[in-house]
Every structure is written in C-alpha cells, then in structure tokens.
C-alpha cells in the first residue's frame, strides 16, 4: 500500500514531467535534424564544389565525434568563448546538428538513386535546377530515404537521454533523482526503460504508417 502511495505521489508526477521534457527535446530536434539533413544532403549531391566540400566536412565531423562530446562542447565548451546556452537549447542544438549529419547520408543515397531520366525530363520541361531538385527529385528521394531517416529518429529518441549529462533534466534525469532519493534503482530504471521502449515502439509504428501513407503507386523502390 505504501509502495502504491509512493508511486502515485512521487514517481508518477516526476516521470510525467520528465516525459514532457523528453518530448520537447525529441520533437523539435527530429524536425530540425530532418530539415538540416535534407539541405545538407542536397548540397552534397547538387551543390557547388566548395559547398559540397563544406557539407562533407560537416558530416564527417559530426558523425565521427560522439554525441556526448558534442553536447559537452555546446554546453560546457562554448562559455569559453563567451557564448552561453541553456541546457535545453544546447541539447536541442546538439541533437539536431548530429542527427542532421546522419539524415544527410540517407538523403544523399536516395538522391543518387533517382534515375537520370527524371532530371533530364525536368530540364527539358524548362525547370530551373532549384525547381527541379525541390519539385521533382526531392519528393521521390525523401520517400526512399524514409526508412533510414525513421531509424535515425528512433536513435534520437534513445539519445535524448544524454541530455541528462548536460543537466537538462528529462525522463532519465528525473529517474536518476527519484532513484537516488529512494534507493529503488532497479525498479525505477526498469520503469524508465519501459517508457523508452514504449516511445521507440510507438515511433516505429507511426513511421511505418507514414511510409505506407506516402507510398506512390507505381513509384515503388524496385522499379526497373
């Protein structure tokens, strides 16, 4: 009975609060990350030579350095040059930039997989290069990149727990506080784990649904 009371009055509200912070981290980061990924992916395929080089360097750097190090640079490192970010902003910035680099890989692969005929047809219809990319190539490419990008979003859900390390108290952070107060580490972290499992499972269901919804009949992947 006492246990139940503890769960009701302490655990549940704290975890709900943490859950909302987690969602507030995940949603903007995934949208921003996807946007960055698409832009960088386009630059890496169709950009001018210097833009391409810059985009490639960005991706190599952000994929090669652990997310924790990146978060530490944004949060603890930037004050060194007098830039102060709140933990929340630093986390969203870190997540978006990092997942943008990964998204761009999938987008790039998808852009390259679009057949040349699509481009030639657009050009012969008088599209400018930008029009061609954004109204002909990208709509097809994004559909192909979706499975990879979806995976990346699921990774992002899990990596959002790292925000705790730069003192942004989200689900994991709330769990850590609860657990150190009550010494019920196993129970609390199992509950936290279940929350993340639920989030990742729901996200993968939703992403599959989106993929199905966006599928264009006749434009499936394995078309000759």
């Amino acid at each position: 009975m006492e246990e139940w009371l503890y769960i009701q009055t302490e655990v549940y509200p704290a975890l709900m609060k943490g859950f909302w912070v987690s969602l507030q981290l995940i949603l903007p980061s995934s949208i921003l990350g996807l946007f960055i990924g698409i832009m960088i992916g386009v630059l890496r395929v169709y950009g001018s030579r210097p833009a391409m080089a810059a985009a490639n360097t960005y991706v190599a750097l952000f994929r090669g350095v652990p997310l924790v190090v990146q978060l530490f640079i944004w949060y603890f490192g930037l004050p060194y040059i007098k830039i102060y970010l709140s933990p929340f902003i630093a986390a969203v910035l870190g997540f978006s930039l990092c997942s943008g680099a990964y998204h761009s890989e999938y987008v790039r692969g998808a852009l390259l997989s679009i057949r040349r005929g699509q481009m030639l047809a657009a050009q012969s219809l008088g599209f400018t290069k930008v029009q061609m990319i954004f109204s002909i190539i990208l709509p097809q490419a994004i559909r192909r990149a979706l499975p990879g990008c979806g995976n990346e979003i699921i990774y992002l859900i899990k990596y959002s727990s790292l925000a705790y390390m730069i003192t942004c108290i989200e689900l994991t952070g709330q769990g850590k506080i609860l657990a150190s107060n009550s010494f019920k580490y196993t129970e609390i972290f199992l509950i936290i784990g279940a929350c993340y499992l639920a989030m990742t499972s729901v996200a993968s269901l939703v992403l599959n649904r989106v993929e199905d919804r966006l599928r264009l009949p006749g434009f499936e992947h394995h078309r000759i």
Binding site: Y159, S161, L162, Y164, A179, Y185, F189, G193, Y196, S201
Partner: peptide, 17 residues
C-alpha cells in the same frame, strides 16, 4: 529500444546492488 544510459544506470546502480 532502451537507451544506453538507462541500461548503464540500471545495471550499475540497480542490478549490481
């Protein structure tokens, strides 16, 4: 489906104790 950080805490602080 579960983040690494949560597993680390679960094993180190939880299960080990």
């Amino acid at each position: 489906g579960i983040p690494l950080l949560v597993f680390l805490f679960l094993f180190y602080f939880g299960l080990c104790t």
